[in-house]
Design a protein around this nucleic acid. Structure first.
Lengths: 331, 331
DNA sequence: AATTAATATGTAATTGATTACATACATATT
DNA sequence: AATATGTATGTAATCAATTACATATTAATT
C-alpha cells in the first residue's frame, strides 16, 4: 500500500536499521549508505509514518492548545508565544476548540490519555478545579491566561486583581469617584478577580460602594450596550466605567455616545485585554494589556520542562501587566 | 510504565482479543466478559493508546485545519462548520497556523505525509497552485474560502467575482458613479476575484475606469486609513468605496470621518466578510456575507467522502453569498 | 445420534517505526 | 603478533493496539 522503511531498505540495499540511522542523522553510518538511502528515499517519495515512530518512542512532540472558541482572535498572541517556545524545542502546537462545553473539553483532554499529544494547555477552562487538579497529577496539563482557584496545576497568568485595581486607580486619579463596573454573570475566575480589584481600589480610596454601579451580563458587545445604558440612566450616572473586557467597553461606549455623553470627558472608559480593535474602535480605548506572547511562551517552556522532569511543577506564575492609555480616558 | 491492554486482560482474566472486542463493542462477547473487562478498565484507570490503534488501523480520525493566523477570528464560523460535519462522523478537527509562511504550511502538510492526520483543509493557502495540485493527487487535501486558479484540489468557496460585482452594483444602484476600491498588493485569489467583480460592475454600467480610484495596500486597518485618505483627497473624491475586507473598511471609514465626510451620505462604504465587528463598529458596515458555517460543513463532508472513495473528487464548489445592508450605505 | 451452525474465546501475526545486541572488519596499541 | 578499540551494519525484539485464524463449547437441525 504505502511506502515503508522496508521498501527504502530494499531499494537502497541496506537494512531497515541503517535507513533509520540515516534518517535520524545518527553517526557511525558510511557515506555510501547515506547516499544510497537518500537516493532511495527520493526515488520512492518516502515519508516516514509517525504512528510507528511515535508508538516506539512513546512521544509525539505535539502540544494541544485547548481554547473555548476562535470568535475573538484574542488567543492569537498566546498561541504565537506557545508556538515560538514549542518550535525551538522541536514541538508542534495544535489547537482545538471546546465551544464552552466541559464535556467536549474532557473529550479533547482524551488526546492526552490516548497519547495522541504529549501535553495540553487549557486557555479558559470549563471543567472544574477538582477535575483538572486530579488529571494534572498524571498528565502534562497546564493552564494559561485564566487561573482556577484551588487548582493544583501548572498555571501562567497575570494578577487580575492587581490589574483591575490599577485600572480603577487610574480612573480615580483622574478625579472620578462615581465609577461603574460592567462584568459577567458567569463566575469565571478572571471576572471574579477583576471585580475584586475594582472593589479593592474603591475601598482603599474610601469611596463608598454603590451596588447600582455594578452590572452583571455576559461577554458580548450587546451586554456592554445594555450595561452602560442602565448605568448612565441612573439619577447620578457614573463618571467612569471599567469593563472586564474590551468588547464590553465597545458596547458601553457606543451606548454612552448614543445617550449624548462625551466619551473621555463626561465619562471615561477602561477596558481589559487590549484586543486589536481597541485602537481601531473610535474613540480609541484605554485598556489593560496582558503580556500574551510571553505567557504563551512561558507556559510551553514550563510544560516541556515538566514532560522531562522527574516531578511535575504545578506552580502558578504571574507575569506583569500594563496600562494602555488612549482617548477613552481623555489621554 | 503505562497501563496497556495486556494489563486489562490479565486483571479481567481474559485475552487481549476479548478486551479489544469489548472496548470496540463488537458482538459475540459474553456478558460475563464485558463485565469483567469494564471492571478491570475502571479499576486500572485504563485508557487505550491510540498510537497502537492508529498504526494498526492506519487511520487517526483526525482532520487538520490549516489557517494563516488566529488574529481576526474570521475563521471561527468555518471551523465550527467543519467541526459539526466532522463530529457527526466521529472525526476530530485540529487547527494549526502558518503565519503566512509557505514553508511552515508545508511543514504542517507533513502531518498528512506522516499519517498523523487523515486529511487537511487549507484556508487561505500560501503555497502555489502547482504544489497543492500535486499533493492533492496523493493526499486528502481540500481548500476552503479561498480557491486557487488552476489548482486541481477539492475546493469549497463562494463566487468572489459575483459577490464583489453585487456589492458594487448595489452602490451604483444608489446613484454613485465615482466608486473607489481598496484592495491588496498581495495577489491572493480572492483579492483578484473581488477586483475583477469591481471592474466588471463598472464596465457593465458603462462607467469609465479611473485608475486613481484603486488603492493597493495590505490587509491591515492602517491600509484602509491610508487608502481612503488618498482617495478622498483627490480633486474629485469618490462617492463610494468598496473594500475587499471589512477591516479595510473600518480604517477607511475612520479616515473619511476624520476628513469631515459624512458616511452613508457623502460617501458610502461596502466591506467584505461580515466579521463580528461589522455591526459593532459605528457606523455599522454594509458588507458581503459568506456562508462560512456551510462552507466548513461541506468541505469536511466532501473530504471524508474522498477518504473513503475509490477516486478523489477534486471539484470546486461555490456556495451562495448575500449582501448585508447597514448604515455605511445609508440603509 | 450425527451433523451443522452459532457463539465465545484465545493465539499469534500485523502495523511501521526504533534500537539493543551481535557480528564483522578495520585500525590502533602494546 | 596479540589484543583492544572503533566503525559500520544487520537481525530481531519492542512499542500497543486490532484481527485473521484456530479451537472449544453450546445450540439447532436433520
Amino acid at each position: 500500500m504505502s511506502i515503508t522503511i522496508k521498501d527504502v531498505a530494499r531499494v537502497a540495499n541496506v537494512s531497515v536499521a541503517t535507513v533509520s540511522r540515516v534518517l535520524n542523522k545518527k553517526k557511525n553510518v558510511s557515506d555510501d549508505a547515506i547516499e544510497a538511502v537518500n537516493k532511495a528515499v527520493k526515488s520512492l517519495g518516502y515519508s516516514p509514518n509517525f504512528l510507528g515512530r511515535d508508538l516506539r518512542m512513546s512521544e509525539t512532540r505535539r502540544i494541544l492548545a485547548i481554547i473555548a472558541s476562535m470568535k475573538h482572535g484574542f488567543y492569537s498572541d498566546v498561541i504565537m508565544g506557545m508556538e515560538q517556545a514549542a518550535f525551538t524545542q522541536g514541538y508542534d502546537v495544535l489547537i482545538a476548540t471546546t465551544h464552552d462545553d466541559p464535556e467536549h473539553e474532557m473529550h479533547l483532554l482524551g488526546m492526552l490519555f490516548s497519547r495522541s499529544v504529549d501535553g495540553a494547555v487549557i486557555l479558559g477552562p470549563k471543567l472544574d478545579a477538582k477535575v483538572i487538579s486530579e488529571l494534572a497529577e498524571s498528565y502534562n496539563i497546564a493552564m494559561c491566561l485564566e487561573r482556577l482557584d484551588d487548582c493544583k496545576a501548572l498555571t501562567v497568568t497575570i494578577d487580575n486583581v492587581k490589574a483591575a485595581k490599577d485600572a480603577v486607580n487610574y480612573l480615580i486619579g483622574k478625579g472620578r469617584k462615581k465609577i461603574g463596573l460592567i462584568t459577567t454573570e458567569v463566575r469565571s475566575q478572571s471576572s471574579i478577580d477583576r471585580e475584586k480589584g475594582y472593589f479593592e481600589a474603591l475601598k482603599e480610596h474610601g469611596i463608598e460602594i454603590n451596588k447600582d454601579y455594578v452590572y452583571y451580563g455576559d461577554y458580548d458587545y450587546e451586554s456592554g450596550v445594555a450595561g452602560c445604558t442602565k448605568l448612565m440612566q441612573l439619577a447620578e450616572p457614573p463618571e467612569a466605567i471599567f469593563s472586564i473586557s474590551d468588547t464590553l467597553s465597545f458596547g458601553a461606549m457606543n451606548a454612552a455616545n448614543e445617550l449624548g455623553f462625551t466619551i473621555g470627558k463626561d465619562v471615561l472608559f477602561f477596558g481589559f485585554d487590549n484586543i486589536s480593535y481597541a485602537h481601531i474602535f473610535s474613540p480609541h480605548l484605554s485598556t489593560v494589556e496582558q503580556p500574551c506572547v510571553m505567557q504563551g511562551r512561558l507556559v510551553v517552556e514550563k510544560l516541556i520542562e515538566n514532560m522531562k522532569a522527574e516531578e511535575r511543577d504545578r506552580g502558578i506564575y504571574m507575569l506583569p501587566h500594563s496600562l494602555i492609555l488612549r482617548e477613552s480616558t481623555g489621554d
